[in-house]
Amino acid sequence: MTQSTNTNPSFQLLLTVTEQTILELGCNKATLQEIMNRTGLSKGAIYHYVKSKDELFSLILEARMQSVNEKFHAAVNQAKPGELIGPLQVITEGIIPQITDEKDVSNIIFVYLLSRRDDPRIQEILQRNHQYSLELAVKWIQIGQQYHVIPEHLDAHTVASSFLLYVYGLRVQRMIVPNASGVDGRQLFEFFYRTLRVT
């Protein structure tokens, strides 16, 4: 997702209306035709951004991660030297609602795409989304290392992979057992804070 696309009003309208449509109708009934009707955008305008509704759904997941990323960078810029708490809180506060609320649009999309992973196009979308999330997580850890708040000996890729494994696990758990007493934002924050402060 490019910066120009990210801030384009038509693109933002497309994402917002698609989210609302999914919440109202579910992923199966949220057709591109329904989204065109609701946005007033032409088929050509939508196909300028995506080739399918599944790709559009994936862009919503990316936009959610990009929003967390932007808030993370803002927190890093405001943090005192050597401070990890603020930026890490931004990440956990941005991600926890997405993965623990089974009615959150990102969970609805995730389950929908995961249920269709036998389709090679969907598998590619899932892999691309995973790679995007992994690259962001690696960058977050590397920034922490550059600011000397995360030990340099920690392998950023390994820690980021563990973070995503934990997040995916929580997401799937909440889909299977919505009322399970699980990890909340504070607990996730403390877990990753302890992990990243290991010396």
Rank of each mutant, 00 (worst) to 15 (best):
H48A: 05
H48F: 10
V50H: 03
V50N: 10
V50W: 07
V50Y: 07
K51W: 09
S52D: 02
S52C: 01
K53C: 02
D54T: 07
D54E: 09
L56V: 01
F57K: 02
S58K: 07
L59Y: 12
L59N: 06
I60Y: 00
I60T: 01
I60G: 00
L61S: 03
E62H: 02
E62F: 02
A63L: 01
R64C: 11
M65F: 01
M65S: 05
Q66S: 08
Q66L: 03
V68R: 02
N69S: 13
K71G: 12
K71Y: 09
K71C: 05
K71S: 11
F72S: 03
H73Y: 02
H73K: 03
A74I: 12
A74Q: 11
N77A: 14
Q78I: 08
Q78S: 13
A79E: 07
A79R: 09
A79H: 08
K80W: 05
P81K: 14
P81D: 12
G82E: 00
E83C: 07
L84H: 04
I85D: 15
I85P: 00
P87W: 09
L88Q: 05
Q89W: 14
I91T: 08
I91E: 05
I91D: 08
T92A: 07
E93C: 11
E93F: 12
G94C: 00
G94W: 03
I95G: 02
I96N: 13
Q98V: 12
I99T: 04
E102M: 14
E102W: 14
K103H: 15
D104H: 15
V105K: 06
S106D: 09
S106W: 13
I108Y: 07
I108G: 02
I109D: 05
V111Q: 15
Y112G: 07
L114N: 12
L114H: 10
S115P: 11
S115Y: 08
R116Y: 08
R116L: 14
R117T: 09
D118K: 08
D119C: 08
P120E: 07
P120V: 05
P120W: 04
R121C: 10
R121I: 14
I122C: 03
E124G: 13
Q127V: 06
Q127P: 13
Q127D: 12
Q127A: 05
R128N: 15
R128D: 12
R128H: 11
H130C: 04
Y132N: 09
Y132S: 01
S133R: 15
L134K: 07
L134F: 06
E135K: 11
E135Y: 05
E135D: 13
E135N: 12
L136I: 04
L136P: 04
L136A: 10
A137Y: 03
K139I: 03
K139E: 13
W140G: 07
W140D: 05
I141P: 06
I143Y: 00
